[in-house]
């Protein structure tokens, strides 16, 4: 057991002791996934319909879970969800926006993970995070699945088809581009 993993174990054990033996969170998976989607909407600027429309939500969720561990993911999603609830009950979106900025993106613990989630949705690639206890030197970025690459939000954000995928049809190369640089 390396030192980081050991610290995470200790942290979880202490939490259990001081919180009366309760596990850190007690979210079931469907709740977690729901929070994950809401969080992804906030991070990417794409609607839930568009995110689900990529067909990649479950795969991304499990990729994150496998790479940062279930507990840390729960903690992050719970943090987001609490901000979301606060913003909704005060009917003030800025609570959520500021909260995501200060409590998540600027946070040592969550910042890199949140950036990774954005990258995951946009370029379908998972990048190593040193702080999670994994050896970042031996782990390289990877595209999470062949089907995920063409579903990266990057392509619809810039209005083009992903190179080598989602071909726009025979002969369409003779048409004007659908986007301009201006």
């Amino acid at each position: 057991m390396n030192i980081q993993v050991w610290f995470r174990w200790l942290y979880a054990a202490l939490w259990r002791i001081f919180s009366g033996g309760q596990p850190i969170m007690n979210l079931d998976q469907s709740e977690m996934k729901e929070y994950f989607l809401d969080f992804s909407v906030a991070l990417t600027g794409f609607s839930k319909f568009n995110l689900l429309g990529t067909g990649q939500a479950d795969l991304y969720y499990s990729t994150i879970e496998q790479n940062i561990g279930n507990e840390l993911l729960q903690e992050l999603l719970q943090t987001f969800h609490n901000l979301d609830l606060k913003a909704k009950s005060a009917n003030d979106q800025s609570i959520l926006d500021k909260g995501i900025s200060f409590d998540i993106l600027d946070s040592k613990k969550f910042g890199a993970i949140a950036c990774n989630i954005i990258k995951l949705w946009y370029v379908a690639t998972w990048y190593p995070i040193p702080q999670t206890g994994q050896d970042s030197n031996s782990q390289k970025p990877f595209i999470v699945s062949p089907q995920a690459y063409p579903e990266g939000l990057l392509w619809s954000a810039i209005g083009v088809n992903p190179p080598a995928a989602k071909a726009p049809g025979y002969g369409t190369w003779s048409e004007k581009p659908s986007v301009t640089l201006s």
Binding site: F49, G55, A167, G169, Y170, G171
Partner: peptide, 20 residues
Amino acid sequence: LPAVGGMFKLKYQAERLIKN
């Protein structure tokens, strides 16, 4: 041919619905 190119866009629209 350009019209059939449009059919590809339909495919992606359909897939988005089907995945929701």
